[in-house]
Amino acid sequence: MTAMGLMAAAGLGVLVALAGIWVSRWRRAQSIGALMAVVVVAAMAATFAGVAAITLQMVLEGSARFVVLGVVAVGALVGTCVAAVVSRRVVGESRRLVEAVRSVPFVAPQGLPSELQIIANTLEEAYARERALEGARRELVAWVSHDLRTPLAGMRAMAEALEDGVVTDLRYVSRIRHEVERLSAMVDDLFELSRIHAGALRLSRSHIGLADLVADTMAGAEALAAAKGVRLAAAVEAPVPVPVEADAGALGRALANLVVNAIRHTPSDGTVTLSTGVSGGMAYLAVADACGGIPPADLERVFDVAFRGETARTPTADGGAGLGLAIAQGIVEAHDGEIGVVNAGAGCRFEIRLPPASG
């Protein structure tokens, strides 16, 4: 009789469980409270049915049988009441979170259950990032509007003067060509930055040596440094640093952007030093200049798009588009690396850190 009771209890439990699963799937779009109620009711129903089946098979007569069933029924009622209270609190906290999300600006409510608190804190961080990006986009639009309008107005005036025969100086033609090249470089930088922000930057990775990258970058920057009267120096750690797995063209552009910015902000007779090595298990590329340093309040913002601090890397008369640091940061982060800047010596030191190549 006992075996039959166990089989009956197991069978009833399975049926109740299947029914509970079906109801929860059918009503999965309902509130958390409703789903919790289904779970509790299913658990209590399975317990009550199992106990009832065993009790009916046991040698219990009269009041003893009713006492057992009554105890189980009371337990089921108590469990249902507790579940109702808990589910009501969960629903209330969920609604509090929803109301906070709908408010502007969003501030994560405190005192939520741990899982909801994690969601709220994550949402607050995401909203903060979105606000920062939106602010950067607005600044970029204003910046582009200003820095495109100025050269275009000058080119229009020079073109009209040439067209009307007011002037015949070929220097106007040379100036127009110079401005066209500057605008073309600016558009190229904007396009590259948009690809980085859209996650559309495609990297062709291979094992490359950082010493070779430093040599190539110095060769490409020699003309600009000579025109500015700035010396270029290299310091390669011995033995030659371990290779990294990177896109040589993209990483070379990031390093070149740092070097060009360093040259532009280093006074004549100053020195820009490129160095590479391994530190803390990470390969690094560093560019040290003699710009006089960056105000501490600006150090964390120099990589922001369109940031213009007291000594920020901004568009200059020699054609800089002012987006070099933002592009460099995007390229480095696409390589799973880090980029930062600190004041050091007579200027500042920009450093790119990359994980060494595996294998």
Rank of each mutant, 00 (worst) to 15 (best):
R202V: 13
V14T: 11
A226R: 13
R96A: 15
D164S: 15
A321E: 07
V91S: 06
A76L: 09
G249F: 05
L213I: 04
V332C: 01
M58W: 05
R313P: 12
V85P: 04
R149N: 00
A256N: 08
E139P: 02
S268H: 11
G199T: 08
W143I: 01
S145I: 09
R88Y: 00
S103H: 14
V259Y: 00
P243L: 02
R96Q: 13
N343W: 08
L255N: 02
V85F: 04
G11F: 05
G345T: 12
R88Q: 02
V40Y: 00
R137T: 12
R27A: 08
A42C: 13
G62R: 08
A136L: 11
G319A: 11
L112F: 02
V59T: 12
E181I: 09
A283N: 07
G229T: 09
A161H: 04
K228Q: 14
H335L: 07
M218Q: 15
S268Y: 06
L354C: 04
G33M: 03
R138C: 11
A153H: 08
A161G: 09
G330L: 02
I263Q: 03
Y127T: 01
A153Q: 14
G322M: 12
E61C: 04
R131F: 07
L148T: 05
L274V: 15
T47E: 09
G280P: 15
V259M: 10
T276N: 05
S268W: 06
G293V: 06
F350G: 03
A328M: 09
D289R: 02
V74F: 06
A136R: 10
D212G: 09
L258Q: 11
G249A: 12
A100P: 02
L224N: 04
H207T: 06
S114W: 00
D304E: 15
G340W: 04
A233I: 05
V71C: 03
D336Q: 12
R65L: 09
T47M: 11
R88G: 00
R202H: 07
S24I: 11
L201C: 00
A45L: 13
E125P: 02
F66Y: 15
E310T: 10
G209A: 06
F191Q: 08
D188K: 13
G281I: 00
V272M: 04
T122C: 05
P296H: 11
S174H: 02
R27C: 07
M282E: 11
V16I: 12
M58T: 06
M36A: 13
S268G: 14
A334D: 07
F66H: 11
R89W: 08
L56M: 08
S268A: 15
W143Y: 09
G293T: 05
V51L: 14
E134Q: 14
G319L: 03
E115G: 02
A297M: 12
A254T: 02
S358Q: 14
M186A: 03
A53F: 01
L112W: 01
L12A: 05
V41I: 10
V242K: 10
